[in-house]
Amino acid sequence: MPLLELRIRRKAQPRAGGPALEVLRDVALDFPPGSVTALLGPSGCGKTTLLRILTGLDTAFEGEVRHRPRRIGMVFQEPRLLPWRSLAENLRIVAAAAGLPPPPVEALLARVGLEGWAPRLPGELSLGMARRAALARALAVRPELLVLDEPFASLDAANAVRMRAVIAAVLAEGATTAVLVTHAVEDAAALAGRVAMLTPRPATLSALVAVPEAARREPAVLQSALAG
């Protein structure tokens, strides 16, 4: 897979009855194959918008995305599973859409701690479980790019711990390029190889640092690396 290049000159959001709101300005980022990048920044700074541009969901911006892979798996903040389909069918449908043979549903669900849940409907799941199911769905397309938008937001402590372990295990395989949006330095330190720091709106890149090994145990190290 060639280097995925994100070049945003400007992204503005039209507003009813007012001037457009500038969300992003001059963000240039490359994503080497297999890299795990955490996007860090204050809430509302445009991290999700950046993801939407990266994945091609938002095309109304000035700039370009080069070498966007075909198979992208994404975990949205809301799980967004098809509520009328069982978990197994949710996984099969995206794999079929990607032109892949039927995915190993049970194995994928087991990876996210949902063994035995294949025949159940999304409505029967808690938010934590549904988000893990959404991760299983993302993995079902064998993603060349895996995008996680605030995967720990509004999870209780136990579910957040579980989600973190599942994501860490998936990312440790190094099979996919991953982008993780978060506002918690600890998550970035624990999961990412490097951190891209965004400023408040209009967001621009303020720092891009590799996560120091020491930060895995002591997230404060990353904090100071970002500050410096």
């Binding site: 994945t55 992208i72 949205f76 809301e78 967004r80 098809l82 449908i93 995206v94 859409a97």
Partner: peptide, 13 residues
């Protein structure tokens, strides 16, 4: 619209 985006992201025909 959020399910529409899912369909676009996963390239549903």
């Amino acid at each position: 619209p959020s399910l529409d985006e899912v369909a676009r992201l996963y390239r549903f025909g």
